[in-house]
Simulated scan of single mutants.
Amino acid sequence: MLINALDHFVILVPDAEAAADQYGLLLGRECDWKHHNPTDGTTTAVFFLGNTSVELLGPSGDGPVGARIREILGDKPGALTTLVFNTDDIHETHYSASRRGLRPEEIIGQSATYNGLTRSWSRFRCGDPLFDDVKVFMLSNTEGVKVVIPPRAGAATRVDHIVLNTANPERTMAAYGAKLDLRLALDRTNEKWGARFIFFRTHDLTIEVVQRLDGSMSAEDKDHLWGVTYEVNDLDDAHTRLTVAGVQVSEVRKGRKAGTRVMSVKSHDLGIPTLLLDNKGER
């Protein structure tokens, strides 16, 4: 496969405008891009980070995609559903995906304008049932570039990792390792933490596959995206900023990865388990 990086991931939300305000407070950033698709019946709000983007996708008006989002969400505040990988050559990647049995759908070209700037891209979905409940797309940007606004103190700068829960790690390794050709960086079982951890790397972002050993998932349960860890430029500033703004967060604590500190986010997270992390170690 010709994958460069994770272009973005998608969180489905009931109202993209309201979710952008809420998530912007959490990330400490302004929304970088918005567009409305009346044909699909959706509104998109995007935050450009240093190594990927966060796309909030919600229903707006009538349209089949918006109706499907409402059906998926029910009364949930959000759902982390989709990984979109970047490629320089969408046609060659489509051919490769066909050869690898990823069941690629047709390539679709799209374009949108916001604040006088236009972005265009081509994409296709991989329909391989190995991905279970995770929607996987390939995308190539054909016009427009990401403009990342420098973050203020305590703001999110990049995504450290995205967590995917599985009950069948061998199947997941076949999907992301053998078929998508992501680099396997770690495969380790930690009895103390009650899980097997499989790390796939794409550019400088990790997709952390977790098989929990407590039997909470059965062999019939489908793989699903679970949570996100964002890196911030100063965790102490982030803790102060969020606490003052009324966002519920835990105390800062030592992270599992050496030299890191983390805190849990307990509100304004759109229902997605969320950690904030920095690499400054203990003080």
Score class of each variant (00 low, 15 high):
Ala5Trp: 06
Leu6Ser: 02
Asp7Gln: 10
Phe9Trp: 06
Val10Leu: 08
Ala19Tyr: 03
Ala19Gln: 05
Tyr23Lys: 05
Leu26Cys: 14
Gly28Lys: 01
Arg29Trp: 04
Asp32Ser: 14
Asp32Arg: 03
Trp33Tyr: 14
Trp33Asn: 10
His36Leu: 14
Asn37Cys: 12
Thr39Val: 15
Gly41His: 00
Thr44Ile: 12
Val46Ser: 01
Phe47Glu: 01
Gly50Leu: 07
Glu55Gln: 11
Glu55His: 08
Pro64Gln: 09
Gly66Trp: 00
Pro77Asn: 11
Gly78Val: 02
Leu83Asn: 00
Leu83Lys: 04
Val84Gln: 01
His91Tyr: 11
His94Asn: 05
Ala97His: 03
Arg103Val: 12
Tyr114Lys: 09
Arg119His: 08
Arg119Tyr: 06
Arg123Val: 09
Phe124Cys: 02
Arg125Ala: 15
Arg125Glu: 14
Asp128Gly: 07
Pro129Phe: 00
Pro129Trp: 02
Ser140Asn: 13
Pro150Trp: 12
Val159Tyr: 02
Asn168Arg: 12
Pro169Tyr: 08
Asp181His: 04
Leu182Glu: 00
Leu184Trp: 10
Thr189Leu: 09
Thr189Gly: 11
Gly194Trp: 03
Phe200Val: 05
Arg212Lys: 11
Leu213Ser: 10
Ser216Met: 11
Ser218Gln: 13
Asp223Ala: 15
Trp226Ile: 05
Gly227Ser: 08
Glu231Pro: 00
Asp234Ile: 05
Asp234Leu: 02
Ser250Leu: 13
Ser250Trp: 09
Arg253Asn: 10
Gly255Ala: 05
Thr260His: 14
Ser264Thr: 15
Lys266Trp: 08
Gly271Thr: 04
Ile272Pro: 03
Thr274Cys: 12
Gly281Ala: 13
Gly281Ser: 10
